[in-house]
Design a protein around this nucleic acid. Structure first.
Length: 497
RNA sequence: GGCGCUAUCGUCUAACGGUUAGGACGGAGCCCUCUCAAGGCUUAAAUACGGGUUCGAUUCCCGUUAGCGCUACCA
């Protein structure tokens, strides 16, 4: 594949914490677009802010991306990822022809470019103190002028040997036009732009310098990034121009919002992918759902459930929306339920296991296998299974006898039903759902009560719950011995009551 | 304040000048039914406002309003 003509996208998160759900959407679009065009998606680590840097976040980010099913073609190699205390390999390395993929390891390159820009007269050193800048801004605000760096150091020839930053010299009286693949044509007058810092005093680049240099160096053809970057696009365009590089295609993605219309953040609820994982969401459902915020298949197509392959096949920038979209937990939950129902029984069982284990249940595989098909349509989140089936795996269950005794049911009658059910279930030759159903229906018929209340008595006696998977299948899964024992136990409890 | 982006049911969205403005989530109702779900059917619910352009605007243009983003040696 000729790399020069290849479609290449990149996802460049800052390792400041767990992967955010909004980041998942961006990463997904990077991959969908690149793959749709037979290109490559690059993972780059934007770790130029040493103050907010969380080293453990790097393996965490890659791990999360993998879990959700997003595999990048190029990215940080093993040695760029922090090893644990014992120096064990993380196993998360990706690698690629443009190593390293962490910006903190590319410092000399940014310094070179910064120097070149100074030589070119497109950038200059600035030794203004934070206090000075702060003061400047306050005065501007007071005079109701637009706030921003005044350009004080533009022509001062600040020497290189004292602490300083390097600023880009924004050409005045220019008009910059961006042809954005999503937003269309956007124009700015450079007069409103202020000379931004390119290289900080710690010799780390700012986002602007690093991203332009790396996107160029790594042959990125399409920059898909969140909406919030749109206003810095003219600066980036100017940088490409100053360096004599051709700019990539830009596509600014609509934001993922919280219910209040503001950018999705912690106060709206869960926002870290990790949290969704722990809450029992399926990665496929998350991806499918995120794809539908800001993108739609269009053409009157009403399909909503898409596999990653299908999304890849159908994804185009033309169908990316301009307006931001509110993240709906309700709809995600619904979609998660759809995905759970579409799982094979063994697959569901495997995915459920960790949640059952962490609920301290002693799993009996035979019971679990029997009940799986019956809880499948009843799950929205994986951990929902716990309260539905924990009665299968406990030696002792508590029952609220009071909730049995409703709709004309009294204790003696309930006790008799339990005893009779226990006896009949002991007698039947084959203990399967159909036989259990036949027996219990017979018991109900022989009782003076209606079928509903009778089954409620049996349900609570056997499971301790008012809400359970279907009764006969639950009893079948529990097994004859435990069922009979629980029925008799209940009968006794009802008599001494 | 300045600059920019955005605007269809509560929410995600479809309708690339002509539709009874469609679907999905959520809501309501009904059916099914051993509880709870799932499933099926039905239903309420939207083009922010004002001007143009046009035979005809959800759709194109302008303005207003509102929301959001940026305005850091953060990304």
């Amino acid at each position: 594949m000729e790399i020069m003509n290849e479609v290449r996208t990149r996802f460049a998160p800052s390792p400041t914490g767990w992967l955010h759900i909004g980041g998942v959407r961006t990463a997904l679009f990077e991959i969908l677009f690149a793959r749709h065009h037979g290109g490559k998606a690059v993972l780059r680590i934007d770790d130029t802010d040493r103050e907010r840097l969380v080293p453990e976040a790097i393996p965490g980010l890659i791990e999360d991306l993998r879990w959700v099913g997003l595999y990048f073609d190029e990215g940080p190699a093993e040695d760029e990822i922090r090893h644990d205390e014992d120096g064990h390999e993380s196993g998360l390395g990706i690698g690629g022809p443009f190593q390293p993929y962490s910006q903190s390891r590319r410092l000399p390159r940014y310094l070179d470019i910064s120097e070149e820009l100074i030589r070119l007269g497109c950038a200059y050193r600035c030794d203004c103190t934070p206090e000075r800048l702060q003061q400047e801004r306050e005065q501007q605000a007071e005079r109701k002028e637009p706030v921003g760096y005044s350009g004080y150091c533009r022509d001062r020839n600040v020497p290189a040997d004292a602490p300083h930053v390097v600023r880009f010299k924004i050409p005045q009286d220019r008009s910059i036009t961006l042809q954005d693949a999503v937003k269309g044509e956007v124009r700015w007058d450079t007069i409103i732009l202020r000379d931004p810092v390119l290289l900080k005093s710690d010799v780390y680049p700012t986002y602007h310098l690093a991203t332009v240099v790396d996107d160029h160096d790594m042959r990125i053809s399409h920059v898909l990034r969140a909406d919030e970057w749109l206003s810095t696009a003219p600066l980036h365009l100017l940088l490409y121009e100053a360096l004599g590089w051709s700019a990539p295609v830009f596509a600014h993605l609509p934001p993922v919002l919280g219910t209040d219309g503001k950018k999705l953040s912690k106060r709206h609820g869960a926002t870290f992918l990790r949290t969704f994982r722990e809450a029992g969401y399926l990665p496929e459902a998350i991806l499918n759902f995120m794809a539908l915020i800001g993108w739609s298949p269009g053409e009157g197509d009403e399909q909503e459930i898409f596999s990653l392959d299908e999304l890849t096949r159908r994804f185009t920038l033309e169908r990316v929306n301009n307006a931001g979209g509110v993240f709906s937990y309700d709809k995600l939950k619904w979609m998660n339920g759809v995905y759970i129902r579409n799982l094979s029984a063994p697959d569901l069982q495997a995915r459920l296991r960790p949640f059952l284990v962490s609920a301290s249940l002693q799993i009996d595989d035979e019971k679990l296998t029997r009940i799986i098909p019956h809880i499948q349509p009843r799950l929205e989140l994986l951990p929902d299974a716990v309260s539905l089936i924990d009665f299968l795996f406990k030696d002792h269950i508590d029952r609220d006898l009071g909730s049995m005794l409703k709709k004309g049911m009294d204790a003696p009658a309930a006790s008799a039903i339990c005893n009779k059910a226990a006896d009949r279930l002991t007698e039947i030759p084959t203990f399967d759902a159909a036989s259990i159903e036949a027996v219990l229906r017979q018991v109900a018929e022989e009782s003076s009560a209606k079928i509903g209340p009778v089954f409620t008595v049996v349900r609570i006696a056997v499971t301790g719950k008012t809400v359970t998977p279907p009764l006969f299948e639950s009893i079948f899964a529990l097994g004859r011995a435990q069922t009979v024992q629980r029925l008799k136990e209940t009968a006794n409890l009802l008599t001494i009551r």
